[in-house]
């Protein structure tokens, strides 16, 4: 059975007919062809599919593993995927920092980590190293050893604070 749902994804409004058993991850990747969001385990254990979701009535977005959300549940939500992190060719400071510090290797975990890190900096603009590590605990990375990812988030946080001043 299909459901009609309304989504706002990266600022664009969509009316979609989605099978009841499809996940938000499937809708993003297969129907909207926003393939930057990755499928790593389909069990909510690796964080590769993380996107920012602002649920109907909520006042801020939160990072969500999109493989764990059934598409009909997302009706009315505002979603930001990795494709929505940059604006008009201007990269998010986190994206710049990931390139500068060498925080991406194979790149498969990178979109989920960037989205999750954006949520962290939105709620905690000046996180401690421990806060960064704890925020990333649901994002697996097998290439980098995490240290440069932590460095990159610290660098982006500094850049964000400078902009704010």
């Amino acid at each position: 059975m299909n459901h009609d749902i309304h989504l706002i994804v990266n600022g664009e409004a969509y009316l979609l007919s989605v099978p009841a058993h499809h996940t938000l991850l499937q809708v993003l990747r297969e129907q909207l062809v926003l393939t930057g969001t990755k499928n790593g385990c389909e069990a909510g254990e690796c964080g590769a599919c993380a996107v920012l979701v602002k649920w109907p009535g909520a006042d801020h977005a939160e990072p969500v593993n999109s493989c764990m959300v059934l598409a009909p549940e997302a009706d009315g939500a505002e979603i930001v995927t990795i494709e929505g992190l940059a604006h008009d060719e201007q990269l998010d400071p986190l994206q710049e920092a990931f390139i500068t510090t060498g925080a991406t290797q194979c790149g498969f975990c990178t979109p989920g980590i960037l989205v999750n890190a954006r949520a962290l900096l939105d709620r905690t603009p000046d996180p401690s190293e421990t806060e960064i590590r704890e925020a990333l605990v649901g994002n697996l990375c097998r290439c980098t050893g995490y240290v440069r990812i932590i460095d990159a988030i610290e660098m982006a946080a500094r850049a964000g604070r400078e902009v704010a001043r």
């Binding site: 930057g36 494709e83 992190l85 500068t100 991406t104 990178t110």
Partner: peptide
């Protein structure tokens, strides 16, 4: 820097 870095951090 990694020559494919921009593609990897943008989901492209």
């Amino acid at each position: 820097q990694r020559i494919e870095g921009r593609a990897k951090v943008t989901g492209a």
